[in-house]
């Protein structure tokens, strides 16, 4: 009994944190930060941010057009 209380608390907290991150605005911010990093030459960082944005958008409804733009940003990111 006691154990379950202890373990559900952090799990709930984690779910709440993730839910907060699941928004159009957050996805857009990750995309824009990605572009910002890319324009400054930090391509690995940019790639990480684009993927983060895509991951969020994958779980949101009506994000397909925005997701395609982020995917294109990722597609033209140079390697090396």
């Amino acid at each position: 009994m006691d154990n379950s209380v202890v373990t559900t608390q952090p799990v709930n907290q984690q779910v709440a944190d993730e839910a907060l991150l699941l928004s159009h605005d957050v996805a857009a911010v990750f995309n824009d930060l990605g572009v910002l990093m890319a324009v400054r030459g930090h391509t690995e960082e940019a790639e990480r941010l684009y993927r983060r944005s895509l991951e969020i958008r994958r779980r949101l409804p009506d994000e397909s057009a925005q997701a395609a733009l982020t995917r294109r940003n990722l597609a033209i990111l140079p390697t090396g």
């Binding site: 324009v39 030459g41 990111l77 140079p78 390697t79």
Partner: peptide
């Protein structure tokens, strides 16, 4: 221009990248 800008940034030419973008 936008895509080339990303390439210049990756090559370290941030000024050119900004102009192209």
């Amino acid at each position: 221009c936008a895509d080339f800008g990303m390439l210049m940034a990756a090559k370290g030419n941030i000024a050119a990248a900004g102009r192209l973008t």
